[in-house]
Computed example of a mutant assay.
Amino acid sequence: MSLDPALLEILRCPDEHHAALDYDATASTLTCTECARVYEVRDGIPVLLLDEARQGGEKS
């Protein structure tokens, strides 16, 4: 499932820096361009919760 490009334009990392997110449709994830936190996209819905994010490079 793909995310709407207009939504991707406004989504930002919920951490205090509010950096842009890169979308990986294959992995269904959004990755912060500043802190490298990885947020899952579940059933087409981005889960932008800091306590559920994982650091980039980790395997789930």
Rank of each mutant, 00 (worst) to 15 (best):
Y23D: 04
L50M: 15
A25H: 02
L30M: 09
I45E: 10
E58V: 05
C35E: 06
Y39I: 00
R54H: 04
P46Q: 12
C13H: 08
H18I: 04
E16Q: 14
A25D: 06
L49I: 11
L3C: 05
E58K: 14
D15S: 12
L49H: 02
E40I: 00
A6T: 14
S60G: 13
L7K: 06
S60N: 05
C13T: 10
D22H: 06
D4H: 03
P46S: 07
E16I: 12
M1A: 14
A19E: 12
A19M: 10
E40T: 07
V47M: 10
V41F: 05
G56V: 00
D43W: 01
H18D: 02
D22C: 03
A19G: 15
C35M: 01
L30K: 03
C32M: 10
E52Q: 15
G56P: 06
R12T: 14
C13L: 03
E52Y: 04
I45Q: 11
R12Y: 09
T33E: 06
R54L: 07
T29Q: 08
I10E: 14
E58I: 02
G56H: 02
P5I: 03
Q55N: 08
T31F: 00
E34L: 10
E34Y: 05
P46D: 13
Y39V: 02
P46Y: 08
T33A: 08
A19R: 05
E40G: 07
K59R: 09
P46C: 05
Y23R: 00
P46H: 12
T26L: 04
L7F: 02
C35N: 04
A53K: 01
C32T: 07
D24E: 11
E34F: 03
R37N: 15
Y39K: 08
I10H: 13
C13G: 12
H17Y: 09
C13R: 07
K59I: 11
E16L: 13
A25F: 01
D51I: 08
L50P: 00
P5T: 01
G57L: 02
V38L: 06
T29P: 12
E52W: 01
L21H: 10
E40W: 03
L50W: 00
T29D: 07
G56I: 01
V38P: 14
T26G: 07
E34R: 07
L8S: 08
A6S: 14
D24P: 04
E16H: 14
I10S: 15
A27W: 04
A53N: 05
A25G: 07
E16A: 15
S28A: 15
L3N: 06
D15Q: 07
G57D: 09
R42F: 04
Y39M: 03
Y39F: 15
D15L: 13
V38W: 04
L30A: 05
T26E: 09
